[in-house]
């Protein structure tokens, strides 16, 4: 690339940012951000997310985002989780004949240097503890099941890259084990979605699907505190199960991606007359 080309590209990038800043400061998106009309919705969520004076309309969990994700719009999140699950099932189906485990371990040492390995032995536990904290405090502080699960999935990813895929399979982190955990997580989410409805129906009352706190004409609900500690009712259960489902789902993808291309192509070609 010539020197003048670089100058022109740099100048146009600077001009673009400067014009964008000028347009925004001149009111290109309105002078008050966010706009007043949006504020009404936001105000309602903030007003009802945790409001002991208005329990019939409140999610009774101080974290607005998790309340919206798993209570106000819980059904939406259920379908999002289902889409993610289908994506993983799809990749497992594509790779169905390709063995993640087995194979002979390469001779000699594998993976990165012993320094990195030793540090990883310690950080894996730290990562899992932080992930659990993110998920278990999802109803109190920013975070939640998906975030915690994505963090937890870093631990098997590190072992996979820094040791080897033979090592991680030997630890019991196999595709089928992760599929089992992922399915258990999804069953847990489904049970949690119906738990208030199921228990109330057995007692002859009425309740909603995805009900968390008592609502008008549906007075049943999950306790939002246990012994003085806020638990967010169903939110805590959703976050725990989502963490397992998401971390296992990501781990399956990492295991599949760690298979060498030569092995994948060998199976997909299906021998001499496979296609």
């Amino acid at each position: 690339m010539g020197r003048w080309q670089k100058v022109v590209i740099t100048a146009s990038m600077v001009a673009f940012v400067a014009l964008l800043a000028l347009a925004l400061s001149a009111g290109g998106l309105g002078f008050t951000l966010p706009a007043g009309r949006v504020r009404d919705v936001a105000r309602w969520y903030l007003f009802t997310t945790f409001n002991p004076d208005l329990e019939l309309f409140s999610a009774m969990a101080p974290e607005g985002v998790t309340s919206i994700v798993w209570d106000y719009r819980g059904l939406d999140t259920l379908f999002e989780t289902a889409v993610f699950f289908l994506a993983i099932i799809g990749s497992v189906a594509i790779m169905r004949d390709i063995k993640t485990g087995g194979g002979s371990k390469p001779k000699g040492s594998t993976g990165l240097s012993p320094i990195v390995k030793t540090v990883t032995r310690i950080t894996v536990g730290i990562i899992l503890a932080v992930a659990a904290s993110i998920a278990l405090h999802g109803h109190l502080t920013p975070g939640g099941g998906f975030q915690g699960g994505a963090t937890a999935a870093v631990a098997p990813l590190l072992i996979l890259v820094i040791f080897s895929r033979y090592y991680i399979e030997r630890l019991g982190v196999s595709k089928n084990a992760m599929l089992a955990i992922r399915s258990l997580g999804l069953v847990g989410i489904a049970v949690t979605a119906f738990i208030v409805l199921a228990v109330t129906s057995l007692q002859g009352g009425v309740a909603y699907v995805f009900q968390n706190q008592p609502k008008p004409y549906a007075p049943a609900g999950m306790p939002y505190e246990v012994g003085g500690s806020l638990t967010g009712g169903t939110l805590l259960l959703f976050n725990i199960f989502e963490m397992f489902a998401v971390s296992a789902g990501f781990t399956i993808i990492f295991l599949l991606l760690a298979i060498p291309e030569s092995e994948v192509l060998g199976v997909l070609r299906g021998g001499e007359d496979g296609h």
Binding site: I122, G125, I126, A129, V130, A132, L136, H137, S229, T231
Partner: peptide
């Protein structure tokens, strides 16, 4: 180690954190 990291990352020592911290 996991317990200490859990409590420090959670940022407070209360019943909820101690109970969940022990399980984790």
């Amino acid at each position: 180690l996991a317990f200490v990291v859990y409590i420090v990352f959670s940022g407070s020592v209360n019943t909820y954190n101690i109970v969940t911290g022990v399980v984790v």
